[in-house]
């Protein structure tokens, strides 16, 4: 019996929109790693004294760096939204023997996101 095996194209994720969104979601991790690098450069500059911090601020205004960071922000937001959307699938919480509905778990994640973002902004900007 000769069976037919459909070949898988190298870029199979271009065949369906949902596959493409999946690969973009996975690639968001690259921008998370980029952020860590950027954050470490910032920490290093702050440790190095006032002059070095000023130099960091000047450099961070270069057009190509701003472009990278804007793209990174879009990907990081994609990560956050997809992460909070999928978390209720893995996390099952019970309160007084009853299962907390998944949308409520997602809402709790968004609330935590809002609060933590506000706290960070306050600590940095105050």
């Amino acid at each position: 019996m000769s069976l037919y095996h459909r070949p898988i194209p190298l870029f199979w994720w271009l065949e369906r929109r949902s596959y493409l969104v999946f690969v973009l979601r996975e690639l968001s991790s690259v921008f998370v790693a980029w952020f860590v690098v950027y954050l470490l450069l910032l920490i290093n500059a702050v440790s190095g004294g006032s002059a070095e911090y000023e130099r960091f601020l000047d450099r961070s205004g270069q057009w190509w760096l701003v472009t990278i960071n804007v793209i990174a922000l879009v990907f990081v937001l994609l990560h956050a939204v997809t992460w909070f959307g999928l978390a209720p699938k893995a996390i099952v919480v019970r309160l007084r023997g009853r299962r907390v509905p998944p949308p409520l778990i997602a809402a709790a994640h968004y609330a935590a996101w809002l609060v933590l973002s506000a706290v960070i902004a306050w600590v940095i900007l105050r």
Partner: peptide
């Protein structure tokens, strides 16, 4: 990362 990175990267 989902909780902390967006605000830090935005700022």
């Amino acid at each position: 990362a989902a909780l902390l990175v967006p605000i830090l990267l935005f700022l």
